[in-house]
Design a protein around this nucleic acid. Structure first.
Lengths: 378, 378
DNA sequence: GTGAAAGCGCTAACAG
DNA sequence: CTGTTAGCGCTTTCAC
């Protein structure tokens, strides 16, 4: 089958040791020999097997990535960021998705560890109460979380509570009083909880009454009639919806349009994530934006820096804290706001507000101009 | 560092062979011994290294995936399909993106081969004239193309020419006469060419004059003024645009809206790809839909079937054509329309037309109601 | 400048 | 049922 170093050696008439040197340390071998070996390599189309190398104790240059899904572009955007740096730095990525399922998370991590990845970049449902992560910590397996908003573990995310708070404040500033938060089935996730907390705080601070998050079935083709009722009828119906993510916001928008609501006149919508695609919508979706690509990049940087740290430690080539220092410096240089209990585990990237056209200003304190139902374009 | 089979053997007080058997053939080892070994495995948190196994000539159960980008959900959708089957069947995926760059394609394939993947699933810029694919063929490395529309190589795609033809026919049926095709910078790709061919044929058959595809810079924030001019001014300006993919359609739509055109009144838009997200747009994007997830799934099936075929061949366990037959059967069962020169390399999945609201009917043969410029919502 | 040999973690004969 | 041993592809001393 695939040629091995032996085949090359035989073909070239030298020992495998010489072939190995020709590949890894060309200057240590006689130019004439080198040339012959190279020709044999070409002739046989030989590629050194990383397996042999890795087995020999070398680095695998393999990083595991664990994501809930790729159907949500948030994660695709992160992955883009990771992938870019990875390929630039000669690493390979091994990808597994979990569909937010704890069991699949477990299997993914296990599989990846078996593959001897040097580190993991992951987004899990709930970071704080995750036995697997404790296990990683215990075993000294390097990892960085993305989007999981926790100070207890190495992570990169926005401040979900603050971001949601800011977003809802914006809605309030536009005159909205009856604001409802909608969440997907991932209501169990750490970030969904924090976003709801931010919503609650913003509401309370404005003297308004927060409500529990209304859970929406993400994948349903239509909004449930009960939900639609809740959103559209009664004097207390909300004038604005804060959706826990952009995809949800889009699904809800479609549902409301089908129910013949005008957007944003009959209902304002604020999403969360800042999907690039949201800007292409009409009207462009207002959103609390996370820098998804940058989150991926930052997670990568943190991981690699820590990896280099342990590598160097292992080699006794540098001081003990090199990893942490470099890490800290990198974060600082990139303008990250790192909490001051340095070296902090969690890295918080700044969020931004995208004031799209899905938010209407409310002048009347009653909250809405009328209950007129107007046919929409669709 | 990570415990090896040796550590387990030492800890349990048995030989490494027994440990190996305890893992791979539990029934062949004494229950008491088995229990002890298992306890040691747990105690040390041992995971067998696939490296050792693979090196030993076992299967790597690793499949390489090469995609242009994840920024375009088309590919994310395919990957979802692949990933689902892969994880269900105990395979791991190694992902590399190329950004449509031939050099990166080369590097990706090389890297993946070095990792000893058992097969490749890829989307390349141009399948027919791809020296790397010839190399794969020559070396007996299994691969399946996705979206690349060629009969010369193992591939899964829609019939891009026919699909584009059908789409443009639909525009014509709605009364459009001046239809322009827009393409991204990937005009060099095989499918973009075929789509333009379909456009050309549909136009000609209707006695209309096809135009060369207008190339659009995909990533630009705005449409170039010259492009905008081309689309919006003059008596011969088009009434409908056929965009070579949905993402491009969305970018163009935004550009037109910013130029204060009403959609679809002032311009009809037809995309290609059938992104799930397109349905969430307002108005929902009309599109020539490819079954992206299914394309991923079908590519996976083909690859694995062929892989099993060669495995079995290698083991002399079955007839020579087992792979092909199973392959054919699978395709048939799934309702695929396989060309009859069996066993065909290329598998063509059916496309569908999504008649979104971005297409307006034209009654007047002059092609447009007026040139009135009306402020849009945004 | 080159080769022989050991060993990385594991599996699979083959003995016992 | 269990242990011994060879060998997968490669790098790396250590001799020559």
């Amino acid at each position: 089958m695939t040629p091995t170093i032996k085949d090359v050696a035989a073909h070239a008439g030298f020992s495998i040791a010489t072939v190995s040197r020709a590949i890894n340390a060309p200057h240590t071998v006689n130019p004439v020999t080198l040339e012959k070996v190279r020709q044999s390599i070409d002739a046989l189309n030989f590629r050194p097997s990383p397996l042999g190398r890795q087995l020999r104790g070398e680095r695998s240059r393999l990083i595991g990535v664990v994501l809930p899904t790729l159907a949500n572009p948030v994660f695709a955007e992160c992955l883009q960021g990771i992938d870019e740096l990875a390929s630039a730095q000669g690493y390979r990525l091994m990808l597994m998705t979990t569909q937010y399922d704890a069991d699949r998370e477990r299997r993914a991590i296990e599989t990846l560890r078996e593959q001897r990845v040097e580190g993991l970049i992951l987004t899990v449902a709930d970071a704080d109460t995750h036995p697997l992560l404790d296990e990683l910590d215990r075993d000294g397996m390097l990892y960085v979380l993305m989007h999981n908003d926790t100070v207890r573990r190495p992570s990169v995310s926005v401040d979900n509570r603050q971001a949601a708070y800011d977003g809802v404040r914006m809605l309030i500033a536009h005159g909205h009083r009856r604001i409802l938060m909608l969440a997907g089935t991932l209501a169990a996730s750490d970030r969904a909880r924090l976003r709801h907390l931010g919503y609650t705080q913003a509401m309370q601070q404005a003297g308004l009454t927060p409500a529990p998050a209304l859970e929406i079935d993400f994948n349903a083709d239509e909004l449930a009639p009960s939900v639609l009722d809740h959103l559209t009828t009664g004097a207390n119906r909300p004038t604005a919806l804060f959706c826990s993510n952009d995809l949800l916001a889009m699904v809800v928008m479609r549902g409301l349009r089908r129910a013949r609501l005008q957007l944003p006149e009959d209902m304002s919508i604020l999403g969360f994530d800042g999907l690039a695609m949201g800007e292409l919508l009409s009207p462009p979706l207002a959103s609390v934006c996370a820098p998804n690509r940058e989150i991926g990049c930052a997670a990568w940087q943190r991981l690699i820096t820590r990896l280099d740290g342990t590598q160097q430690q292992a080699g006794f080539k540098t001081g003990f804290n090199a990893g942490f220092n470099a890490d800290f410096k990198a974060g600082f240089k990139a303008g990250f706001s790192e909490t001051l209990q340095a070296p902090s585990l969690s890295l918080t990237l700044p969020h931004t507000l995208r004031e799209g056209a899905t938010i209407a200003a409310i002048s009347d304190t009653s909250g809405t101009s009328s209950n007129r139902i107007v046919p929409s374009l669709a």
